[in-house]
Amino acid sequence: MIRTVFVCGPLSITATVLTTWLIMAVLWLVAWLTARRLSIDPGPLQSAVEGVVSSIEEAVSAVAPQHARRILPLIGTLWIFLVGANLCGLIPGLHSPTRDLSATAALATVVFLSTIWFGVRIQGVKRYLHHYLVPSPILLPFHLLSEVTRTVALAVRLFGNMMSLEMAALLILLVAGFLAPVPILMLHIVEALVQAYIFGMLALIYVAGGIQSQQLREYKRGGPHA
């Protein structure tokens, strides 16, 4: 049960939103502290941030080398935010925003829309929509169903894993007592990182697939010089 902290007009501000704002504030603070002291000779903080950004760039470039700089902010933000969101459940008094289906559904929706957005921006509307009709127009319903189901799966997978982890820790705490759920919390760390990686990597694959599916078909049709 997600608690509503306050109501602002038609919007209910829940703990999930507040935690998200907190994570955003922290990330913005870290980004600002890092960005204002960037230099050719990096310090420890800059080295760590550069390592994170370089790793994300390499991962994105490995999947979509021609459009890495364009989709890097989305994928990088997904990874960074999900790591922070998944791990903040370990802090006493806070809950992971990703244990809320509304948050994971929002992220999955963003990925779904981003897939369409980048596909249309790069391929054009006609060519992007055309990829739903290949190899045969008969497969159009299945393409559409796939788009919906993978988005739902993306949201439910993350929500289910994170909620189950917190639930398991809570149940063990209630049954076994103090310090008993520590191993589960350690598992929480691993699971948080793994789920963030899976979510971001799937999003990357979906977006890159939407961009490159049409290109791949044109490549097969016209050869390398098409």
């Binding site: 209910s12 704002w21 941030v49 950004v53 559904a105 929002a106 963003v110």
Partner: peptide, 22 residues
């Protein structure tokens, strides 16, 4: 409400990190 705010929050975060980090 949370769904909509999370979408907005995430897009804002993308903008923040794009301009202040990436």
């Amino acid at each position: 409400s949370t769904f909509l705010l999370e979408i907005i929050n995430f897009l804002i975060l993308v903008w923040i990190l794009k301009h202040f980090l990436y």
